[in-house]
Simulated assay, not measured.
Amino acid sequence: MSDSPQIRLVNVPALGHAPGYSHLAEVRGGRTLYLSGQIALDAQGEVVGAGDFAAQARQVFRNIELALAEVGCTFDHVVKLTFFLTDFAHLPEMRAVRDEFVKVAAPPASSAVQVAALVRPELLIEVEAVAAAP
């Protein structure tokens, strides 16, 4: 469960165990924020961690963190993450990095999709986020 009274993250017993994500996020009131897909670029537009999935994932999550901070939010406000990976073999690494940023006891609703490629050939991950702000 999120610490925010406006966000309720739920796992539905009838849907079975949800390892590392919540089945649904209920948002009551507030503002809804839709973050564009973030990739592993730094402030100068340079790729961070070419060939290093974990380094790219951390940069992506830092970029999301920066975007959220710009409007006074944190990862506590994130209700949905969508992961685009060029190879599902990186899923365990992605989860480990994600867990550095989200509350593991009540993670956001999530989806993961394997894609053939991202906007730049050296990129291995892109992440979209939806957040609920007070």
Rank of each mutant, 00 (worst) to 15 (best):
L124H: 00
F83C: 11
R95F: 07
V113L: 13
A40E: 03
S111V: 10
L118R: 02
A116D: 11
A55N: 04
Q59W: 07
S111G: 13
S36W: 09
A117V: 10
A109E: 05
V78H: 04
K103V: 08
Y34Q: 08
E65M: 08
D87R: 09
S111W: 11
E126M: 09
L66K: 13
D99F: 12
C73E: 12
T74V: 06
K103I: 11
G51A: 08
Q38L: 06
V60R: 02
V102A: 05
I125D: 00
L68C: 05
V127K: 05
A67Q: 13
R95D: 13
V113Y: 15
G37C: 07
L85V: 10
A105Y: 06
F61L: 13
A69S: 14
E126G: 08
A106H: 12
I39Q: 05
R62H: 09
F88A: 14
R58Q: 14
R58A: 09
M94Q: 14
P121T: 09
Q44P: 03
A89M: 06
V102I: 10
E126T: 03
E100P: 03
F101V: 06
A105P: 03
G45E: 00
L85W: 04
A57Y: 05
V79M: 04
A109T: 12
I39K: 00
V119P: 03
V119L: 12
L118Q: 02
V78G: 00
F83D: 13
A43Q: 13
L85A: 10
V115C: 02
A96E: 13
R95P: 00
F53E: 14
Q38D: 06
D52V: 05
R58K: 11
A117M: 11
G72E: 08
V115T: 14
A96S: 14
E65G: 12
R120S: 11
S110Q: 12
A43M: 10
I125M: 05
K80Y: 14
L81E: 05
S111M: 09
V79D: 01
V119R: 05
A89F: 08
V78S: 01
E70P: 03
A89H: 14
N63R: 01
V47M: 01
E70A: 15
P92T: 08
F53G: 06
F61M: 14
D99K: 08
A105G: 07
A129L: 12
Q59F: 06
L91D: 10
P92Y: 03
F83Q: 08
R62G: 02
A54M: 09
A89S: 14
E126I: 03
T82R: 02
L66W: 12
G72F: 04
E128N: 14
C73W: 04
A57V: 01
S36M: 13
R62Y: 14
A54I: 07
D99Y: 11
L124E: 00
G45S: 01
V60Y: 02
D42K: 00
D42F: 07
P108N: 10
